[in-house]
């Protein structure tokens, strides 16, 4: 562990081929426990260095804003950037299909053995650890934002965190307010 805190690398490797993308996203689909975002980021930004931390934030923020599962949107958008419609379909299949097979096998096991108490206890432990992964990735995403110094961006990030995370404002309302406000603030700040 001699390397610096992950995700800060600026060295970018060449864009992957579609088979490389298919393999990488399938691997992420099969190993991404407790939410795939940390694993996708780890693979694409930290290990393969196909994207910078800022570029990943940029694409992911679009997918976060759009409706639907973020990481599936991300796979479609990233796949499309690399290989057009074919890349998009491959990205979709790669991120979903392996996980679907596994989860339906688990679903079958659950229908048979779901009453076993030990299984329930193990699930509780795994859920606690999974939450930690999201804590780590949110910290990593916040660093490039706050590193740029003063400006409206950190204020908007903190405001939406308080509104959605603490006050539990319905997401649609929060987005309808925060997105125009964030864009307006960005516009005011830059001109």
């Amino acid at each position: 562990m001699t390397e610096p805190p992950s995700g800060e690398g600026d060295a970018i490797n060449p864009r992957p081929s579609l088979p490389e993308l298919l393999f990488a996203l399938s691997y992420v689909s099969l190993t991404g426990f407790g939410g795939v975002l940390p694993f996708a980021r780890r693979m694409i930004v930290e290990q393969k260095r196909w994207m910078s931390a800022e570029e990943f934030n940029e694409v992911f923020s679009l997918c976060q804003f759009l409706p639907g599962p973020n990481i599936v949107n991300f796979s479609v958008v990233y796949g499309a950037r690399l290989g057009g419609p074919l890349g998009a379909v491959l990205g979709l299949i790669a991120i979903l299909a392996p996980a679907m097979v596994v989860v339906m096998i688990l679903g079958g096991i659950y229908m048979r053995f779901g009453d076993v108490a030990a299984l329930q206890r193990i699930l509780s432990g795994l859920a606690a650890a999974a939450a930690g992964l999201i804590v780590a990735v949110s910290a990593k995403m916040a660093v490039p934002l706050f590193r740029r110094g003063f400006g409206p961006a950190p204020i908007v990030a903190v405001a939406i965190f308080i509104a959605v995370g603490i006050l539990r404002v319905p997401l649609l309302w929060a987005l309808l307010v925060a997105t125009p406000a964030g864009i307006a603030l960005a516009w005011r700040w830059r001109t």
Partner: peptide, 8 residues
């Protein structure tokens, strides 16, 4: 405008 919303 979107990036900080996403981070939040």
């Amino acid at each position: 405008g979107l990036v900080p919303v996403s981070v939040g």
